[in-house]
Design a protein around this nucleic acid. Structure first.
Length: 231
DNA sequence: CCCTGATTCGC
DNA sequence: GCGAATCAGG
């Protein structure tokens, strides 16, 4: 079974939705669990709670079907794994509560010019509402906003009459979740996004306002506010 | 044993 | 690129 665009799309959606590889495989049909996992990794999907992680070393697995060649020894070097070289783990949150990564020790043959360490490698700007905004290279909402547990916005928008499902998400529609994942009527706002943000104008206000530390909250920004420049 | 995802490596 | 085989933790 070939990995068509649609199948890949579904794989992504289901994977990120939290389905297990087995479930995804069954859903897609024609593929094994391993195929799903393999594809997921090739797609660069992030790993989800996996039982086996490693900090342990992996045992080598000599899987030579036709001919066993221990002598060859392959190029299968035991992965040093976390060598802790200059490899930023690419933190996803830009929240203020971010912790500095463990200081890597000096790399051999790479004398550091000095301790000149860029304090803010990422481009971050502040939007009118006081929330942080990310540069184009690093997309993703700062923090998934905690959606209202028991309160649902009266009526988000008429467009979602058909329920905006996970599969319907795009960068042009509001991703604000309505309801709780798992509920039969769980869906997303689906309204047109505030340009440059993952949510519509209304939900941008809610999402980012909620990010502000307690005590420093300021009155809700006058809506609509328009990110970079709305014209 | 079952499940899970991660990884390897022949194809 | 694909995925069976294998590994390894729960």
């Amino acid at each position: 079974m070939a990995w068509t665009d649609e199948r890949i799309d579904k794989l992504k959606a289901l994977w990120e939705k939290g389905n297990t590889a087995s479930q995804i495989a069954e859903e897609l049909g024609g593929v094994s669990r391993n195929a799903v996992i393999g594809k997921a990794h090739r797609l660069g999907l992030k790993s989800r709670p996996s039982p086996v992680k490693s900090g342990k070393k992996k045992a080598a697995k000599p899987k030579t079907k036709t001919a066993a060649k221990p002598a060859a020894a392959k190029a299968k070097a035991p992965k040093p794994a976390k060598a802790a070289t200059a490899k930023p783990a690419a933190p996803k949150t830009v929240a203020a509560a971010q912790q500095p990564p463990a200081p890597s020790q000096a790399t051999p043959s790479q004398p550091l010019p000095s301790e000149a360490v860029p304090s803010t490698p990422k481009i971050v700007s502040v939007g009118p509402g006081g929330f942080l905004r990310q540069g184009p290279g690093d997309q993703q909402a700062p923090i998934p906003p905690a959606p209202p547990r028991r309160l649902v916005p009266a009526k988000p928008s008429p467009e979602i009459a058909d329920k905006t499902s996970l599969l319907d998400l795009s960068d042009k529609i509001c991703r604000w979740p309505i309801g709780h994942p798992g509920e039969p009527d769980f869906h997303f706002c689906g309204a047109p996004v505030n340009p440059g943000f993952p949510y519509c104008v209304e939900h941008c206000g809610r999402a980012y306002q909620a990010q502000l530390p307690r005590g420093t909250r300021r009155p809700p920004p006058p809506l609509p506010f328009g990110g970079p420049r709305v014209r």
